[in-house]
Simulated scan of single mutants.
Amino acid sequence: MKRWRWLPYPMLSLSLTLLWLLLANQLSVGHLLLGAFLGWAIALLAGGFWVAVQPVAKPLTLIRFLLLVLMDIVTANIEVARRILGPQAKLHPGFVVVPLELRDEVGLIMLTSIISLTPGTVSADISDDRYSLLLHCLDVTDPQALVQQIKSRYEAPLLEVFPCSAL
């Protein structure tokens, strides 16, 4: 897709314009012009903050992976609700360090987002060298098993989908 220098992200500009019109809750020429200006200016100014997205090597693997993540989110919601509503003596919250093979920004963003979206786990910190991820977990009975589960269930498919993001 060819990008124009004066309009580098047309879909973002259009989306921001529509968002402005929805927030203003009025369709007038003034709001349309203001929304278009804000959409253009924000997209132009934010362009330097965008990360380069690697091409997806295996789109079908990505679709299967996203379905797996969706199922994990639903399952984790049920499990967290069961543990929260049950006796709290069974909870063992704690921090776990996960060594990483991913180096790509997009892959790391996806991994940390998936972990944080799954109830019961939160990505707390990533090391400056991107070699480890600190997680806070609601229930940590076996830290090594949790590390292996995250590496095999989430990191391995991301490495397969984005092969150039490995070590």
Rank of each mutant, 00 (worst) to 15 (best):
Gly39Thr: 03
Ala81Asn: 00
Ala36Glu: 02
Leu23Phe: 15
Asp104His: 08
Gln144Arg: 15
Gly107Ala: 14
Leu108Ala: 08
Asp129Met: 10
Pro157Ile: 13
Leu14Asn: 13
Ser123Pro: 15
Phe95Met: 07
Thr75Phe: 14
Leu44Thr: 04
Pro163Asn: 07
Ser132Leu: 00
Leu111Ser: 05
His92Asp: 07
Leu45Thr: 10
Gln26Trp: 07
Arg153Tyr: 01
Leu27Gln: 06
Asp142Ala: 10
Leu100Phe: 09
Gly47Lys: 02
Leu85Gly: 01
Leu23Trp: 15
Ile84Arg: 06
Thr112Trp: 07
Ser132Asn: 04
Arg153Ser: 03
Arg83Met: 00
Leu16Thr: 13
Ile115Lys: 02
Ser123Val: 14
Leu45Phe: 10
Pro87Ser: 13
Leu138Met: 08
Thr112Gln: 09
Ala36Ser: 05
Val106Glu: 11
Gln88Ile: 06
Phe65His: 13
Leu27Thr: 05
Thr141Gln: 12
Gly48Cys: 01
Ile114Trp: 02
Met71Arg: 11
Asp72Thr: 02
Cys137Glu: 03
Pro163Trp: 10
Pro87Ile: 08
Leu146Ile: 05
Lys58Pro: 07
Ala124Trp: 00
Ala24Cys: 08
Ala166Thr: 11
Pro10Ile: 06
Ala43Val: 02
Leu22Asn: 07
Pro59Asp: 03
Val51Glu: 10
Lys151Glu: 13
Val140Ala: 00
Lys151Gln: 11
Ala36Val: 08
Leu14Asp: 12
His92Ile: 11
Lys90Glu: 15
Leu134Ser: 08
Ala46Pro: 15
Arg82Asp: 01
Gly86Ile: 04
Cys164Asn: 13
Ile42Phe: 13
His31Met: 08
Val106Ser: 11
Trp6Asn: 13
Leu135Pro: 02
Ile114Gly: 03
Glu155Asp: 15
Trp6Cys: 06
